[in-house]
Write a protein that binds this DNA or RNA. Structure first.
Length: 775
DNA sequence: TATATTAACGTTTTT
DNA sequence: CGTTAATATA
């Protein structure tokens, strides 16, 4: 049907505006699509793919479509399936940079000294290994943290630099100057260790491919021939290594389309180079540049606010979002509050109000700059029983019990996996501690063989204590038995057998800590998920690259997440909290990166505002507790950068902003809340400095000014002097019921707050007024 | 070897 | 203030 020149346009072009249409139809030659927030970027991208496939310009396997996150890849695959049906399933090269590079690397692993079944290390394994490398070099771990070296190596790999390419100055910024301790030397040693372990870290997946492309033109030619069309999403987030990988692959046909938004570049600290956008037209002369500027998401005031804010950045490509929707929207609300707890209270109230007015909690989000800000909201929402979810934190496969279970599976699947062996050889406790492991390592070095082989040779010598020898022998026998069983048991079943027989499940069953139950559930979930994969190795590949924990809970919840995590999402109502100097823009970012960092913070603010479909509420607090210290805070400069016409300013403090202005002047923190902002000098975080100048916390004047608002500080004071009266009918050990968390047991009482170990929700602190006593 | 105490530290985060 | 990691002790 696509081949006949129909009068009506094909289905995938329906409803596209002219630039979107151009983005879909310009299939030949390099294309740079600058797509602002909410301009239908993903829609155009998927339509472009559909167009290429339906017009028979290429087979699904001849298209390379890269994204950054698994979430984005899944989303694209999902939307492709809606457009082109089962054709999308045949797209083997739709995925993240890392997943695709890993798939390619498995095919050519031998060219960089790896086996095709190499293991992919996560950051935890990586750090463990680097600690060994640092220790071997004779460096003090305290003075030269492996974590710092990990960061440096990561940066180098992001730039596509091998140990020999590292700039000497950077190399010498690690190590004490004695030979063999420089950063690049340790980097080289780390690579040797990886090779010996038949392992690659995330950065290697791309870097090894670059090495292979450089040294084996035939391999590069093969891939160039294969990919007729290349498509890149979130292009502003590409790092140098990814850029090179892309340009190498695209060089022949030059059918590469990159979609990005320089104003949404918020990952430069992770190696992303916005400059890649500007480079594109240089490296691909004659590229078609298409701008998507019509926003289909937000109201006019929200867009005007976002445009006005981002206009303060220099060096933009320049883009202005507009909306076809002329119906007026409400202006952005800016609300000043007394402190963090009040901020949480206010947002809770507003969310409940919106919910009463018919909005779903799923359509609301609280966006924070940093993870520590989530706690205040969590505390508040727990006590008022408002359902919420916090996005971020540990991913499923990063949890200790999952990593342990995977290590068991890995050592069974690949007997020489030294890291897996080391991780679980004494988990659960088998009496093989530091001493026994030291002997094993020594033996491995002597034999120049992987640790598991050294273990096998050591059971028959008398180097270990009889107890340790017996224990190790039993463990190796277990491993051998499981490997035999692997042949005829389905892999999910095998996993259950291993976890059971190894005593790993028993270990958690015996654990009386609050997390134990959750961990056991996670293990069950793991074995359940395994069934979805054809083989153990397929599952292991998937889990190291792609698995994450989507909370599969359909109930309505208010989302709390970082601004970074919010990119690509949208909500009807967005709460932008903690807009204070030092918090947002983050002091640390500004201390480290100067103007460049400030601009990135501003882009973050832009991302935040443009998440909102209908309403955006910015909140700033006059006082905030950071690291347990009360600190006076000044409203973020970003607030004053939003065109006033689109802002509605208010304050929950009595007397409004003017009184607060007086309070600020009194406190010595200085500065007019809406005026220019003082720049801190000296060392340490800005907020800590401000506190030393005398914040509100210990300032009687500040307290008095707002006394009729019963600020949290006053409440705290009274809590100390009077003591918050808890109810007298609960005691530690009492069985209680909470409407949200269900049944639990009281583990501690602190005034009117109870610490309860809930059967399903885990340990929480809740107000005693929200619980009922059971039985 | 396992547990208790203390010191340090404290953005953003994907793969 | 709370958490985690490293160290001291039973």
């Amino acid at each position: 049907m696509a081949s006949s020149p129909a009068l009506t346009s094909p289905a995938w072009l329906d409803g596209l505006n002219p630039p979107q249409r151009q983005a879909v139809l310009t299939t030949e030659g390099p294309v740079l699509i600058l797509a602002g927030a909410g301009t239908g970027k993903t829609r155009a991208l998927t339509a472009r793919l559909a167009h290429i496939l339906y017009s028979r310009l290429a087979w699904p396997s001849e298209v390379l479509a890269v994204t950054f996150t698994n979430k984005a890849a899944r989303e694209m695959r999902h939307r492709m399936e809606m457009l082109v049906g089962e054709m999308a399933e045949g797209m083997p090269f739709l995925g993240t940079f890392h997943a695709i590079a890993a798939r390619m690397l498995r095919r050519h692993a031998g060219l960089v000294g790896l086996d095709a079944n190499f293991t992919i290390l996560d950051t935890d394994d990586q750090l463990r290994l680097l600690k060994q490398v640092v220790a071997e070099a004779g460096l003090e771990e305290k003075r030269w943290p492996a974590k710092q070296l990990a960061g440096m190596i990561d940066r180098w790999k992001n730039r596509g630099e091998l140990p020999t390419d590292v700039p000497p100055g950077e190399s010498l910024s690690f190590g004490d100057g004695t030979p063999g301790t420089a950063g690049a030397t340790l980097y080289a040693r780390y690579q040797q260790r990886l090779a010996a372990l038949n392992a690659a870290d995330f950065g290697d997946l791309l870097l090894h491919m670059l090495t292979i492309f450089d040294q084996h033109p035939d391999v590069l030619a093969e891939w160039r021939k294969r990919f007729k069309y290349i498509l890149v999403d979130e292009y502003q987030d590409t790092n140098s290594a990814q850029y090179r990988w892309l340009t190498l692959l695209a060089a022949d046909r030059r059918n590469i389309a990159c979609v990005g938004d320089d104003d949404q570049s918020i990952y430069s600290w992770r190696g992303a180079e916005v400059a890649n956008i500007l480079r594109f037209e240089k490296d691909f002369p004659g590229a078609t540049v298409i701008k998507l500027e019509q926003n289909y998401r937000s109201t006019a005031p929200i867009l005007a606010a976002a445009n006005g804010l981002i206009a303060h950045n220099k060096g933009r490509i320049g883009k202005a979002l507009f909306t076809g929707d002329t119906s007026a929207g409400e202006p952005i609300k800016v609300i000043g509050v007394w402190d963090g707890p009040e901020e949480a209270r206010l947002v809770g109230d507003k969310a409940e109000q919106l919910a009463r007015d018919g909005s779903s909690l799923n359509d609301m989000a609280i966006l924070v700059r940093a993870q520590f800000q989530t706690r205040a909201f969590e505390d508040r929402f727990v006590s008022i029983g408002l359902p919420y979810k916090i996005v971020g934190g540990f991913r499923f496969y990063e949890r200790a019990e999952i990593r342990d279970a995977l290590a068991y599976l890995r050592i069974v699947a690949s007997p020489n996996d030294a890291l897996a062996f080391e991780r679980i050889v004494n988990v659960p406790k088998r009496g093989l501690g530091d001493k026994a492991m030291g002997a094993l390592h020594a033996q491995a070095r002597r034999m120049d063989r992987p640790l598991p082989q050294a273990a096998a040779s050591l059971v028959d010598t008398d180097e270990l204590t009889p107890a340790a020898r017996r224990s190790l022998k039993a463990f190796l026998a277990d491993l051998a038995r499981w490997r035999e069983q692997a042949a005829d048991l389905p892999h999910a079943e095998l996993a259950r057998v291993i976890l059971e027989e190894s005593g790993y499940v028993a270990m958690w069953q015996a654990d009386k800590s609050v997390e134990a139950d959750g961990r056991l559930e996670n293990l069950i979930e793991l074995t359940r998920a395994m069934a979805d994969y054809p083989s153990l190795t397929a599952f292991l590949e998937h889990v190291s690259l792609v698995m994450d924990n989507d909370a599969n809970d359909a109930s309505e919840k208010l989302t709390i997440m970082t601004l970074h995590a919010a990119k690509g999402l949208e909500f009807d109502h967005v709460f932008l909290v903690g807009w204070e100097e030092g918090v947002f823009p983050s002091q640390r970012a500004m201390d480290e990166g100067g103007t460049k960092a400030l601009e990135e913070e501003r882009r973050l603010a832009y991302v935040g505002i443009t998440r909102a479909r209908r309403s955006a509420t910015i909140i700033h607090a006059a006082n905030r507790q950071i690291y347990g210290q009360w600190t006076a805070a000044i409203p973020s400069r970003f607030i004053s950068e939003i065109p006033p016409a689109h802002v509605d300013v208010s304050s929950t403090m009595s007397g409004g902003p003017s009184l607060w202005r007086a309070a600020l002047a009194n406190s010595g923190a200085g500065g007019d809340p809406f005026g220019d902002v003082q720049r801190g000098t000296g060392r340490g975080p800005g907020w800590a400095r401000a506190a030393q100048h005398g914040g509100f916390a210990r300032d009687a004047g500040g307290g008095r000014l707002a006394a009729n608002r019963t600020p949290a500080i006053e409440v705290r004071a009274s809590a100390v002097s009077v003591g918050l009266k808890g109810r007298s009918d609960v005691a530690v050990g009492a069985r209680v019921f909470h409407t949200k968390f269900g049944n639990g047991t009281v583990t501690a009482i602190d005034g009117n707050k109870l610490e309860i170990d809930f059967e399903h929700a885990g340990a929480k602190r809740v107000l005693d007024s929200f619980i009922e006593i059971v039985g």
